[in-house]
Design a protein around this nucleic acid. Sequence first.
DNA 1: TGACATAATGTCTAATCTGACATATCTTCT
DNA 2: AGAAGATATGTCAGATTAGACATTATGTCA
Lengths: 111, 111
Amino acid sequence: MKKGKKEKLERAGWVVGGAEEFLDLSDAEMALIDVRVSLAKALRHRRQKMKISQATFAKRVGSSQSRVAKMEAGDPSVSIDLLLRSLITSGSSAEEIGRVIAAAGLDPATV
Amino acid sequence: MKKGKKEKLERAGWVVGGAEEFLDLSDAEMALIDVRVSLAKALRHRRQKMKISQATFAKRVGSSQSRVAKMEAGDPSVSIDLLLRSLITSGSSAEEIGRVIAAAGLDPATV
DNA sequence: TGACATAATGTCTAATCTGACATATCTTCT
DNA sequence: AGAAGATATGTCAGATTAGACATTATGTCA
């Protein structure tokens, strides 16, 4: 496992359980979490820029306030599909989303 | 609806039903299909570059031959989540995937 | 402080998605 | 033609994810 992996997961709010389960987290899973968290941040920024509440945003994209909260939190119960759908429905372009994903996992200081 | 939308959907192999249902397809749905199809192509290219069969590829990413076939076909029953998971598990970087998504929906001749 | 808006968390049932399997349809050989 | 390998298609039971709702927490005013 790479240096700082567990810390990174925990910063992102993930329950990684004991060391045993954690060792089972593959690099692929890590990368996917990075993508999820990046999209989650992009979604929150987008909504905040619109200056609307989670409830209002939820109505516009056809979801619920609680699910929007979970989306923005990068909750494991939210699929990347839903994040993409919400971003696009709210007006993000594929190009914007592509850039977000391309930058996923990079150290924010270097981005 | 934008010009050529239905034709585009049909080229991608989607059953769009009658005109009524088709009119219900929003621009957001179109954009998501573009993303799915782009990722599907990227996955096929990746596997072909590796010179392995769908069955072999399936084992490596923890799926089945039939599902890999559906992934590469951009079948509606395949989630974007699964496409991303398979790409990353097979070694694609977030940056590569980001570029693929950013180019989604663009006219191939211009890309 | 209390009232009010907003955001977070937990939990349901319904809907969607998955791997697996069977089977059919190519492709590429001899 | 026919055997063999690869790919496509259809289906299904089990797993995952969805919106919805209730509840709790966190502001943010007067």
